[in-house]
Design a binder for these strands. Structure first.
Lengths: 354, 354
DNA sequence: CCATTAATAGGGAACGTTTGCATAAAAAAA
DNA sequence: TTTTTTTATGCAAACGTTCCCTATTAATGG
């Protein structure tokens, strides 16, 4: 008898242990139907105040947690948005992600973050993960390698909204959040001109990225405006592999007419360039001035501190998430491919002004 | 008639658009049962080679994607691990996350990343998200505020394995991946002694974090070993709010007998301290030397570059993920609270040696 | 006081899988 | 050929929700 009891108890414990509390349990304990419990828990109307309260009380008492898988299965919604970024080593993307995640959380969405490591193939794999997890929307900044967008267009076709930020896809008609890259580059270069530089080199990015194109054209425009000839020798397209910077900088500085200033596509590039320049023993900014783009955490702390273009990172993340969430739930016909171009700011530091 | 046809076509199109291909569709097209299709797709044995191939072919042809929600609902597994970190602004946690994510992906797990922003409350909220998403395992580095661990113990109780890394919970008997904080601190301080410093201050972390405690005791041991008296005035516990560093450094340097060296709990602290010291016009390392901990990306690039203790970040991430995945699926009785303590390395730079 | 309407609650199908059990077909043994 | 074993398949019940439809009861109005 004792033995029997203890076995029963053991089984009960075993059973309870991994048994998740369901609406069925709540319904049974209150002798009502699970429909009613569901209605209370989803906030549907048409339940008497009394039952409502009873359900709510019992739910908290039993520590009821709704099973999202069951919910998602029937509603075909996941309440999750996906975020795909090329990397999160520099402080740029993490900050954007944090802001976006805040907005998402407030709106009741979970977030799945994936980083493509600047690889096209990984980006595709990430998209599959997002698809498998049935995200309700996707926030994307593409890799430096991405030139084909089929993996992203699938989402559009399936009615899952996409919003691009920073590294956007020009050929897709969806909302995008960018900064005024043209203006930023223009201001950066004009600043270099203002401090008396005339041979300004540009370490540009890969030409599939719109940021590369826009920053390059801003660079060109500033030179033109100030009647400085554009020397193709001073413009180098590179693939953002940081270890190549050394080669390019060495090359530039060994030209018969070396540059007296360098405008880099982004801060990591500028930072690496400065390391190379320092090693060569050249004086910054006198012999060569350097400007970056994005105002990475590090740029204020290094020596010399880096003149750069700051972006409203937090705002980018917030707005991107807001645009996305705004589309989720709305019929595709009401989606609007808004392009938000946020203002930038020139931050002058000692890599250009002693 | 035409009208009827077009309506039908329209409905068909409508229906197809958002209709996800299911095993039922595959089964129907091959006139077999969905059980068989399921068995093929889950790799179960007992299906003839012929049907197997047919199913596989049709599945790829129709671009079948299994509905994870349905699968998870019945299996009670999510194939997802959760990662909770206190922040991801410094390069430290992102790098660990990347490595862990790699391991997880290879083992067929998805990842949900959450950052608690160093807030206890947010950490609890993140745990709830992880619970709601029914993660199969959890990788955690706690916040500077976390002193109660109930929100984490719940996972243990529910049979969901947890592995801590870096910032671990001492009172929970689960696997942990750390570095030899004691040894790191010891070596850092001994290095300072070796270069002739005798009044070595320590900006320590909050005393709920084991890293703080261990680094502090390493600091103490090194001083003791070299017969340098421990001056409590030179040890400051702070809460890792970076803006407070200024106050503490100023305070330390205005002491009647100011320190000639500073060992900071981590790199961000050391970096900020250096900024303050530079502003005061003191010479680094002659007047005051500085050592950090963790070898953040930035520490090599700043001026002066920072002497610090480097951690095998990638390895931490990999091992933590491996330990976790190793426990997933195994019965709780077989879990072993392995503590992996990885070796560190002293990186000498110009903040201690001119 | 009956008819009509409004407010609640329950019943049950559906969502897309997995999986134990039963069974049909085929192959092997008797 | 019959019996046994093996192999391949189908059936149907779960998993925990949501939500449409219907049944009951209460409230309202004439």
């Amino acid at each position: 008898m004792t033995s029997f009891c203890s076995v029963q108890l053991y089984q009960q414990v075993l059973h309870m242990k991994n048994h998740q509390v369901t609406i069925k349990d709540i319904a049974a304990q209150l002798s009502i139907s699970k429909s009613t419990v569901s209605r209370v828990l989803t906030g549907h109307p048409g339940v008497s105040a009394k039952t409502k309260q009873e359900v709510l009380e019992l739910a908290t008492k039993l520590d009821y947690q709704k099973n999202l898988f069951a919910t998602n299965l029937v509603t075909h919604k996941s309440n999750t948005i996906g975020i795909i970024v090329p990397e999160f080593i520099s402080s740029y993307f993490p900050k954007i992600i944090m802001a976006a995640q805040d907005v998402a959380r407030e709106a009741g969405f979970n977030t799945i973050i994936a980083q493509s490591n600047e690889h096209y193939e990984t980006e595709i794999a990430n998209c599959k993960v997002m698809m498998a997890n049935q995200v309700d929307g996707l926030l994307v900044s593409i890799t430096k390698e991405t030139r084909n967008y089929d993996h992203l267009k699938i989402f559009q076709r399936k009615g899952i909204p996409i919003v691009f930020f920073n590294r956007v896809c020009e050929e897709m008609d969806v909302p995008k959040v960018v900064v005024d890259d043209y203006e930023g580059a223009y201001r950066a270069v004009e600043h270099l001109i203002n401090i008396g530089k005339t041979r300004i080199a540009h370490l540009a990015g890969p030409d599939n990225l719109s940021i590369s194109i826009k920053r390059l054209s801003g660079y060109r425009a500033a030179l033109k405006k100030h009647n400085i000839p554009i020397d193709p020798e001073l413009i180098i397209n590179y693939d953002l592999s940081i270890d190549k910077v050394k080669i390019y900088v060495n090359h530039l500085l060994s030209l018969p007419q070396p540059p007296d200033a360098l405008f880099a596509i982004n801060d990591p590039t500028a930072i690496e360039a400065i390391q190379v320049i320092k090693k060569l023993g050249l004086k910054i900014p006198d012999e060569i001035a350097v400007v970056g783009f994005s105002n990475d955490q590090i740029s204020a702390l290094m020596e010399p501190s880096l003149t750069t273009i700051s972006q409203p990172v937090e705002k980018i993340g917030r707005i991107a998430a807001e645009l996305l969430i705004n589309q989720i739930g709305k019929p595709q016909s009401e989606w609007k491919p808004i392009i938000k171009s946020l203002p930038i700011e020139l931050i002058i530091r000692s890599s250009t002004v002693a």
